[in-house]
Design a protein around this nucleic acid. Structure first.
Length: 185
DNA sequence: CCCTGATTCGC
DNA sequence: GCGAATCAGG
């Protein structure tokens, strides 16, 4: 792949929007995040502040670190996304493992697509079978079995970024809330 | 461990 | 100019 005008344009746009290099690379396809970063540098648009840094205002020597921190860090974050839902361009990422009690909503005999369920049963075989303490931010926190028995563990497979579960479990955890409306039509 | 961007340097 | 490898962080 080469940097055609269109690709560069998309790169600029996404970078300006605060998208990460890897996201841009994924969008562009055929390039790695390194390639994107490299290009960004060559294009000379390192700082996403864009509007910031008027080119000559380096009077910021000495950082006494203001006693208080009144600045609220206003982050515009346009988020002009239309291709896919990406509710978090930057920041607010590393969260502590919930590990509390409100975890997965066990799917009773709901009306989850049979496929999704089959998928789950499938992956539960490969599950890492982690214990509560072994869970991390990126291990699927879907519980399997009965907590009161020995037959209990957490899926532990790689989570789908941003989500608390692996792909298969996300499938049954977040149902589009509409199995099937009126069948009579 | 996962991810981020920054830099280097052979191509 | 390009980008993999590497570095430096979170």
């Amino acid at each position: 792949m080469s940097w055609t005008d269109e690709r560069v344009e998309l790169l600029k746009k996404m970078w300006g929007e605060g998208q990460s290099a890897s996201q841009i690379a994924k969008e562009l396809g055929g390039v790695t995040r390194n390639a994107v970063i490299g290009k960004v540098h060559r294009l000379g648009l390192s700082n996403r502040g864009g509007a910031e840094e008027p080119a000559a205002a380096p009077k910021a020597e000495a950082k006494p670190k203001p006693a208080a921190k009144p600045e609220a860090a206003a982050r515009p974050e346009p988020q002009t996304e239309s291709a896919e839902p990406k509710p978090q361009p930057v920041a607010a990422r590393n969260k502590i493992i919930p590990a509390g009690q409100p975890l997965p909503p066990q799917p009773s005999a709901n009306e989850i697509s049979p496929e999704a369920l089959a998928k789950v049963n499938e992956i539960e075989k490969k599950a890492k079978k982690l214990t509560l303490m072994e869970l991390t931010e990126r291990t699927c926190k879907w519980p399997v079995g009965d907590p009161a028995t020995e037959h209990f563990w957490f899926c532990g497979l790689p989570v789908q970024q941003g989500k608390p579960y692996c792909e298969a479990h996300v499938g049954v955890a977040f149902q589009p809330m509409s199995s099937r409306r009126d069948r009579r039509r």
